[in-house]
């Protein structure tokens, strides 16, 4: 049994939260550069230029990429041969609070959805814990902004609606909310599972490296078809019209009930953030 202290987890979460907010994911950076080669609209080119310059400035450590430094969504894969000394959840929250102070992150969490008093340190984090084989802990911190989160959707389709139903609701999500969600977008789609688990599949899809297709050929085809269909909407960078509305579409699927076809669409903005560490 390997022992890991809660202090190690706190330090790692703080570093990941801070780094994710200042350094754009390399794959997102590359996708933005690639988008510039095919964007035809003047406004779209202007926005892509601004985003690449923004990334360069943020990387120097003066300002976070975006003022919405996000809800801290933290994924933990905990090896079964690891014993944590201390409180895992407390350590993660202390790490988020430390990053908020040290990194000059905006306090964007309220304690109660109706009373809305700010917790002032971005706690509590949203924590997803999985038990896995081995003696390591994998931490993934995704600071998730509200602009794209607010435009995300969930449906319980009829099983017979199948692929065409999925395409219809994904395109509807983009048509209604795409321009407000800071395009070009990273689109995460969850298929299957249940009402509670399908949005988590969509969120996990946002963690996949961009343009790495699903292993299942029928899902990879659907990803590629949806990417083309989304870009044909013409929403473009910033929603001002253009060729590049999405950088990538990723689908995560899970088994589901014979009577259900749950679908969730979680939109990620062009500053789709995330950093991971293995302890």
């Amino acid at each position: 049994m390997r022992h890991v202290t809660s202090e190690m987890i706190e330090t790692s979460v703080a570093d990941l939260m801070e780094r994710a907010n200042y350094c754009l994911r390399d794959d997102v950076e590359q996708a933005l550069a690639e988008a510039q080669t095919r964007e035809e609209s003047t406004a779209g080119q202007g926005l892509l230029n601004a985003l690449r310059e923004n990334s360069r400035i943020a990387r120097t450590g003066d300002y976070p990429l975006c003022q919405d430094t996000g809800t801290a969504v933290v994924f933990v894969e905990l090896g079964r041969d690891v014993k944590i000394t201390g409180d895992l959840y407390g350590a993660i929250n202390r790490g988020v609070a430390r990053a908020t102070r040290r990194g000059y992150l905006r306090a964007s969490m309220v304690a109660d959805p109706l009373r809305r008093e700010n917790t002032k340190d971005n706690t509590p984090a949203i924590i997803h814990l999985d038990s896995v084989a081995g003696s390591a802990i994998r931490l993934y911190v995704m600071p998730k902004g509200a602009g794209s989160e607010n435009m995300s959707r969930l449906w319980m389709l009829l099983p017979g609606e199948g692929v065409s139903g999925v395409k219809r609701v994904v395109l509807e999500t983009l048509t209604i909310g795409g321009s407000s969600a800071c395009p070009p977008l990273v689109v995460g789609i969850g298929l299957g599972g249940s009402f509670d688990s399908v949005p988590l599949l969509a969120k996990r899809a946002l963690m996949r490296p961009l343009n790495s297709p699903n292993d299942a050929p029928h899902l990879a085809t659907l990803e590629s078809d949806l990417l083309d269909a989304i870009n044909a909407l013409g929403i473009g960078p910033g929603g001002l019209g253009g060729r590049v509305t999405a950088l990538s579409v990723a689908i995560e699927a899970a088994p589901c009930h014979i009577a259900s076809l749950p679908v969730a669409v979680n939109l990620g903005c062009h500053a789709m953030r995330g950093r991971e560490a293995v302890l």
Partner: peptide, 13 residues
């Protein structure tokens, strides 16, 4: 006016 969404570092300057 639309400002470049998500370019908070650039705009802060």
């Amino acid at each position: 006016f639309a400002a470049p969404g998500g370019a908070g570092a650039l705009l802060a300057q």
